[in-house]
Nucleic acid binder design. Sequence first.
DNA 1: TGACTGATTCAACGACTGTAGAACGAGATG
DNA 2: CATCTCGTTCTACAGTCGTTGAATCAGTCA
Lengths: 192, 192
Amino acid sequence: MSRVSDPSARPSRAEQRRNTEARILGQARRLFAESGYDRTTIRAVATAADVDPGLVMHYFRSKEELFARATEGGPPSLPGGTPEQIAEQLLDVLRGSLADEPVESLAVLRSMLTHPEAAHEAREASRIQRDQISEAIPDDQADLRAGLISAVLIGVVLGRHLIKLDPLADADPDQIVEILRPSIRSLTKADD
Amino acid sequence: MSRVSDPSARPSRAEQRRNTEARILGQARRLFAESGYDRTTIRAVATAADVDPGLVMHYFRSKEELFARATEGGPPSLPGGTPEQIAEQLLDVLRGSLADEPVESLAVLRSMLTHPEAAHEAREASRIQRDQISEAIPDDQADLRAGLISAVLIGVVLGRHLIKLDPLADADPDQIVEILRPSIRSLTKADD
DNA sequence: TGACTGATTCAACGACTGTAGAACGAGATG
DNA sequence: CATCTCGTTCTACAGTCGTTGAATCAGTCA
């Protein structure tokens, strides 16, 4: 018998723990993305994961740590290149974020305005992305331009998935990307 | 003796009530903008306004109504005109929102991701602005373009005042507006 | 088998919240 | 002056939350 998962066998102790932990993390992500940090109770996560609240506390030591574990993982790294290439890469990432709901990111985004720790994570993610972008922009305003790109993209994803602004929530991702292309390109260009 | 406020006299009953109510509303706005709906307690508002929590409940009948009263007032109405003029009007509004903190708006923005009622207000404000903008854009995608402008502007104000993204939080408003001008213009143009 | 470990549950505490209602006290009114 | 109004405070309730520690129950292993 192998020590790794065998669908036909009863899961081992360690396996079962990993399963339960993953189930809790998944539901936590979902609920954090849906309702934000404050309104997501440990009891609700436990219920959704079909588990006792005490168990959540036993695995993750606090609600804070549960949130940290549920939202770890930074922004996607951009290959880099010319300003035009960077713009296309950003638009590709955006297209992906519009097409399906990036639950992990949404959990951070949903909570960043009301939970200081989430705000810190958001700033950190934005800083990383900003550095990647500004590296490719030949301008003394590069950092500011890159920061503005972050803000713009956050606004669009926010408007679609979280605030659900009317035409934006249901529009075709490709169409949105096409409309935004000139804007993003103008922000990476620097000569205006 | 006049019935309206006389600085040298002890305020009348009605005056005193208006004063207290205004003081509560001001502190409520400030705290809602600072901490969002959930984390702003009626007790905290009362303490900040130097008043008993019960009084807040007596004037405004619930926390919900207090929030509604503290955040009433929609987006600024745009004069309208050509797409280029609309773009400039939007940039002017943005400049103002960047220069000083628009406490009322920030109260809504801060809470819109975690408080359904605030989300509704934000959608409503965005819808009004969207209609004003799309009216001036000659395109079948006008609504979507206008919605995207809303999202972009929300993202920028959010990034500056609430998330405090690094270069964005302290940058010169005029500089930000200059950088964003091509983007906003491209979004109002429709021919790309 | 029997001792042990660890996954899981149960019951409870203390803190905080929005809210309700009684009570007080000073200005308005006759 | 007497009565009433109303701004204001005090006290308390019921619910929810994060968190804790003991208890339970099933694998694991000597």
